[in-house]
Design a protein around this nucleic acid. Structure first.
Lengths: 213, 213
DNA sequence: GGGATATGACCTTGGAGTAAGTTACCTCAA
DNA sequence: TTGAGGTAACTTACTCCAAGGTCATATCCC
């Protein structure tokens, strides 16, 4: 008895791996590692589950590949911006702008970076640590410059502000994803206005214990 | 043959429900809905799985009860602060202060509110919508006052800033949870310093395309 | 006896992972 | 040119297991 669809279709491994990786990035990035199903990813890529296992070993292996792809893409972009000589708020805006443009064609990559349902041990944890370090280093650097600019040298303040900054980036990207039709350029302009708004509103609060005369 | 541990232990239903709810809040709030297991929660509460199902119906029902408890606790605190007459940054700081104090004894409640692995349909989704509305309303109100203060009347700007604000709150609370030993008072002071830092650093950036002449 | 509190053992299901076989292409000897 | 053997691509049809959910029964108190 012959099986209907078995047998090679002549697609080279590298091509199939890319197809699978694309489907996996989208699945993991939208529903998260826990809820994503390998069978669904396989179907989405137009092939069957065992082929995924043959090429990526396990669900975790597939996630690892997806994560590495997404994290590398985003980290590279952030480092590119960091290599400029902008500082403080200006640098923050340029980073946001770069991220909006990089994420436009594949927005789900962002969620991949911070998936809370991803395994927290093994190779995935290691890869996560590597990229978290790489990205956090940039944020810490940027925030450090900003803190120096205003004369606050408390390291815990810097640490907390770094967390707030990264979270704000997350929020802005998420908001953007929820408002299709807004271009990266418009978003960057919006971010600029928001920073001005915050700074303007904060001035009265700064009075009681002003930093500069 | 007699079963070792069966039979009543004389604990009234209301008490048990509270025990279970406490264990559930902690479990759901720390590992999230998806990774939390009902059996583990039961064990943690010192009883067996079927009792949980007898009292709460399902894993989803148990989550719903936990969510309602946590959300009500936090929403009530935020509304209390909102009833004050503070505006702008001052109001933001008071909200943060209230949250730090409310969360001190049971920090995991915060995570409960935004669990991305919770079911996104049925009663849970409904409850989520109710509380998201209630909390977002407060944030929108506060941000609206702030925007009026600085003369920005773009509704999308307000929407985005609301998202950033809520995310910043999230980041600060998360940072705080990662730094045990820091008191709510210290955290509030830190938040104050950070706002001043941001506003100070933003001033130069405001110059190139200032909003007001 | 009856109702509330409680449990061990079971059933069920969805999804990860696997075994074993099928098809197509490529290579190289005759 | 051909065809046999090797290998890469590919699938169906399973197994296995963790975790949600249920059943039948046990104990206690009124």
């Amino acid at each position: 008895m012959s099986r209907a669809n078995a047998g090679t279709k002549g697609v080279p491994r590298a091509d199939r791996e890319l197809q699978i990786l694309r489907a996996a990035c989208q699945a993991f990035g939208t529903v998260g590692f826990a809820k994503a199903s390998v069978a669904a990813i396989a179907a989405d890529a137009g092939i069957s589950k065992p082929l995924v296992y043959q090429y990526f070993g396990s669900k975790e292996g597939l996630f690892l590949a997806s994560f590495n792809y997404g994290a590398e893409t985003l980290a590279a972009e952030m480092e590119r911006v960091a290599a400029d000589d902008s500082v403080g708020v200006e640098r923050g805006l340029r980073t946001l702008d770069g991220l909006f443009r990089t994420l436009e064609p594949q927005p789900w990559l962002w969620r991949l970076l911070f998936d809370p349902t991803a395994p927290d041990d093994g190779e995935v944890a290691a890869a996560r640590a590597v990229y978290t370090d790489r990205i956090t280093r940039l944020a810490v650097e940027g925030v450090g410059e900003l803190m120096r600019l205003v004369g606050d040298d408390d390291p815990l303040d810097a640490s907390a502000l770094t967390a707030v900054w990264m979270s704000a980036v997350d929020a802005l990207i998420t908001w953007w994803l929820d408002h299709p039709g807004v271009t990266p350029t418009q978003m960057t302009e919006r971010c600029h206005r928001l920073i001005i708004a915050i700074s303007g509103a904060a001035l009265p609060a700064a009075e009681p214990s002003s930093l500069r005369a």
